[in-house]
Amino acid sequence: MKPTEQQPALSRLAAAFVAGLAFMAAGSVVALATSEAVVLHVVERSRLLALEAEHPALVATALVLLGTGAFGLTRLRAVGRRRVAARAAASAIALVALVVFAAPAIARAS
């Protein structure tokens, strides 16, 4: 029988990083939703930003769930292909969180 693998500290750190990134993006969405009218100047420039401004609660909740999922995914005691799939999913979540966080800044800069 293959012994249970110990999860390396780096993997736990990566899980916390990805989850933190998603939670950070959720916080930024809340900031956008409660911001002054300033965001209205740039909201038309990006469809993603329009979605964030229109459904902030939905987007923030989805990000929190994704972050929690990422935390769970990298703690998964899996081997081989399942572990690779979990890592790919965590990377995708990190990418989505980054895009959501950076969208307002990109819209303002454009």
Binding site: A19, G20, L21, A22, F23, M24, A25, A26, G27, S28, V29, V30, A31, L32, S35, G67, F101, P104
Partner: peptide
């Protein structure tokens, strides 16, 4: 993390 995102935004 949410507070960091909020204040940075």
């Amino acid at each position: 993390a949410a507070a960091i995102g909020y204040f940075s935004e």
